[in-house]
Design a protein around this nucleic acid. Structure first.
Length: 494
RNA sequence: GGUCGGUUCGUCUAGGGGUCCAGGACACCGCCCUUUCACGGCGGCGACACGGGUUCAAAUCCCGUACCGACUACCA
């Protein structure tokens, strides 16, 4: 049978890192099994769901490259079906009308209220409307009394299922409340909606966050009431914030949003790779995997049971996100095939107004060589338009520290560097070896250390204290630009 | 409170009775390379939560404790 899995986010915020990994694992599993990867937007909570969130989630998914194999299902569109199913269960006596007025929690903390309630509640079956006769129930309903529909959970027994990650899970009925299927306002609730949709979409394997592990028992009860075979479940460990706390959109903000990484110049391939290794391992000492390799290696057996921490430090701009994610992105940037990174560089340069169409035409060779030269020490795509700016534009900034350390500290350079420019002027073959000859001889003549000349030149030519070999920089920038920049007074006056 | 789950270097992890005085990666620190910064190479720091069992042998199995987490909603 063809495997069918789904990623089912609720649109109450952007696509965050935990959801993204859930999507990734679903995607990998589907591809590995030759199955289908589906997408369902769980927008049953009208109050919290927003179109903007849906768009953001879709954007994030698109960036990661996970296109669903079938049309996107919007859960709210199925509300009528869910209602009908709840009514059918009511008809069959497997559910009942609960006329208890909806609890008004007011401003109370939801979490605290639940705990308080749980502490008091002894018997999950003590609802006075549970065994109301059909006539009485119908009469009250007909009289217009509002009611919720609850599933009638058995007096004794237990639910059990074999989780692909966590193993055998059992739960006694006495631990499970008669769950609400339909709210008194007629809206279906999550557990009902999920089960109905998963059945309708013919989902064979449900791969989702561990926070749903205990919900699963309730859902199994619904499957049983509906006389359907539940899918196979695989629950994923959670991704936590530093300190082992829950990663929250409210507290941690943009740091957990997928679009943040896209906008920060991450490569989707690198981020996917990083995500894959958070809670899963192929059981080998390897870190870098292409998508195809992940698909090939992926298995539910390789998923861990313990939560992982996503590291970042919001007080440290250098460490704004997980070190390993950043390292992996840098690794991809410097090692991926040159022709593959070129489109990304173009996309980065264009909005920064650093792009010229010649880079794909007569200057293609120069462009490729330059990208290859500078990518070596870049971490994100953003670096091409910031640190790499001097290679693509005459309008670049000078780093004050670079000027102080490599220029002003050696006043002689003020005269020397323009002099070096004069030495360059008559040179025909402005290439690495020839440049080296000239600079070395020049330094010798002046009794200066080679590094002094090189670093001073770097400050003038690139505005930075760090970068590729100066010989390569001279050659890449070319004779004209090198001369012009060596003679420029801008940095000296800064 | 109850139920369920988890616990290997700071972090991601390998390992599932002997091959482990625990391996890799990131981070950090040295050294080498070097005109700078990276890369790369070499090395260092650094962990089986705790306590009991079982066993000739336990990071690996069992029990308890601690800690962390999830769930316990007419949220999803």
């Amino acid at each position: 049978m063809t495997k069918r899995v789904r990623f089912a986010p609720s649109p109450t915020g952007y696509l965050h890192i935990g959801s993204a990994r859930t999507a990734l694992f679903n995607y990998l599993y589907a591809r590995n099994q030759g199955g289908k990867f589906l997408l369902r937007i769980e927008d049953t909570d009208l109050a919290r769901s927003t179109e903007e969130s849906t768009r953001s989630i879709l954007d994030g998914l698109a960036w990661l490259g996970f296109a669903p194999d079938e049309e996107i299902v919007y859960q709210s569109n199925n509300a009528d079906k869910h209602r009908a199913i709840a009514l059918k269960l009511l008809e069959e006596g497997k559910a009942y009308r609960d006329f208890t007025p909806k609890e008004d929690r007011g401003d109370k903390d939801v979490k605290a209220a639940i705990v308080e309630r749980a502490r008091e509640q002894k018997n999950m079956r003590d609802n006075q409307f549970r065994d109301l006769s059909r006539e009485e129930s119908d009469a009250k309903a007909a009289a217009g009394e509002p009611f919720a529909i609850r599933l009638k959970v058995g007096e004794t027994g237990k639910t059990a299922f074999e989780d692909a990650v966590y193993g055998l899970q059992e739960r006694d009925y006495s631990e499970i409340e008669d769950l609400v299927l339909l709210r008194s306002d007629g809206h279906p609730l999550y557990n009902l909606a999920v089960v109905c949709d998963d059945i309708e979409m013919e989902i064979t394997d449900v791969i989702r966050g561990q926070d749903h592990l205990t919900n699963t028992h309730k859902q199994i009860l619904i499957y049983e009431a509906l006389e359907k075979t539940p899918p196979r479940f695989a629950h994923l460990p959670l991704i936590l914030a530093p300190g082992g706390k829950k990663l929250s959109k409210r507290i941690h903000g943009e740091i957990v949003s997928m679009t943040t990484y896209r906008d920060a110049g991450f490569l989707a391939a690198a981020f996917r790779n990083f995500l894959a290794l958070l809670g899963w391992s192929a059981g080998e000492e390897r870190e870098i995997y292409s998508l195809d390799e992940l698909v090939e290696k992926f298995s539910l057996e390789g998923i861990h049971r313990s939560n992982a921490i996503f590291n970042f430090d919001s007080n440290n701009s250098r460490r704004w996100t997980d070190d390993k994610a950043m390292w992996m992105n840098a690794e991809y940037i410097r090692t991926m095939p040159l022709e593959e990174i070129l489109p990304f560089v173009k996309a980065e340069l264009k909005p920064a107004k650093l792009w010229r169409d010649e880079y794909e035409d007569e200057d293609k060779e120069w462009f490729e060589k330059t990208v290859d030269l500078i990518r070596e020490r870049f971490f994100t795509l953003k670096d091409f338009s910031t640190q790499g700016r001097a290679y693509f534009s005459e309008d670049f900034d000078f780093d004050q520290a670079a000027i102080d350390k490599n220029l002003k500290k050696f006043p002689d350079l003020q005269a020397w560097l323009p002099e070096l420019a004069e030495r360059f002027a008559p040179v025909e073959d402005f290439t690495h070896d020839r440049i080296e000859e000239i600079v070395k001889q020049f330094a010798e003549e002046k009794g200066a250390k080679l590094g002094q000349i090189m670093n001073g030149s770097r400050a003038l030519l690139t505005g930075l204290a760090v970068g590729p070999s100066m010989l390569a920089v001279f050659e890449t920038l070319g004779k004209e630009k090198s001369i012009r920049r060596l003679k420029s007074r801008v940095a000296w006056n800064q």
